[in-house]
């Protein structure tokens, strides 16, 4: 896996095919008095294949709604979402996701949790367990195959959740604040691990977060969102992690601070004002 600087940068630039296409996506809800609450004003965004894009916005801006729409769990009120050119409804299985809550099934062992997606797809027991074990072994969790999630630490559970996502081999991985329940050290380690995995498997990743630092450390691009009703305010080309080889190096880079200041200014978060 030794790559020159040029090869790495070319990896960033070469992939121009579009993985997810959001066109004029709007979303509104109705409250109990039938008033319209507009959550997403208008989002048009192309997420390129194999890129790592972060969606950063002030809290409550509608990031989770966006997540639900991209994951195919919610229909947009207007506009459309295409995954690899196909409408989202028919594309279940292409998008794997990971949330702040690990969503491991407490009644399933780690092995059975990891093989869940394969089980749903109807793959035979022997085969799916072999696949799951292979992944678990790869990430140092083979000893816990027969354990129940309750016996694992938060970081390990989140790692299992990631492996479960990978086991179904989705082209696109959606990450919805997957680290925010973890302590800082574990978070840094997992960030690094995920970057490594995404690189190895060549996945497209969408990270939804309010953590500006995390977004800069991991992303190729960052889409900064406005307050609710939200839309894309600005897109930054970052690519520090890919160029420098790790999220840690990205955090130590001079440009990290510049991005941070700019994005912070864009978010226009007013301290003391409840949003």
């Amino acid at each position: 896996m030794v790559q020159t600087y040029l090869e790495k940068t070319s990896m960033v630039d070469v992939e121009k095919r579009i993985a997810i296409e959001l066109r004029g996506v709007k979303k509104h809800f109705y409250d109990s008095d039938e008033n319209v609450i507009q959550v997403i004003k208008d989002i048009t965004l192309d997420i390129k294949e194999k890129e790592f894009i972060s969606i950063v916005g002030p809290s409550g801006c509608g990031k989770s709604t966006m997540f639900n729409i991209i994951a195919g769990l919610m229909e947009p009120s207007e506009g459309n979402v295409k995954v690899h050119g196909e409408s989202i409804g028919s594309s279940t299985g292409h998008v794997g996701y990971m949330m702040q809550k690990d969503l491991l099934f407490p009644w399933r062992t780690i092995l059975d949790n990891v093989s869940l997606g394969l089980e749903v797809k109807g793959i035979a027991k022997k085969e799916r367990e072999d696949i799951a074990l292979e992944y678990l072994a790869k990430y140092g969790l083979a000893d816990f195959a027969k354990a129940y999630p309750a016996t694992l630490s938060g970081g390990m559970r989140q790692r299992v959740a990631l492996i479960r996502t990978l086991a179904i081999d989705p082209d696109i991985i959606l990450l919805d604040e997957p680290f925010s329940a973890l302590d800082y050290q574990t978070r840094l380690v997992l960030e690094e691990e995920i970057l490594g995995i995404l690189r190895d498997f060549g996945k497209t990743a969408v990270l939804i977060t309010h953590d500006i630092g995390e977004a800069i450390a991991m992303s190729d691009r960052i889409a900064v969102m406005t307050q609710r009703p939200t839309s894309v305010k600005k897109i930054y080309d970052v690519g520090l992690a890919k160029r420098l080889g790790s999220g840690m190096k990205a955090r130590a880079d001079q440009r990290y601070n510049e991005f941070f200041e700019n994005i912070w200014a864009d978010l226009d978060i007013q301290i003391g004002r409840s949003s």
């Binding site: 769990l73 809550k101 969503l103 749903v120």
Partner: peptide, 10 residues
Amino acid sequence: NLINLMKSLG
């Protein structure tokens, strides 16, 4: 969320 996860897995 568990049901949504199952849905996303098809």
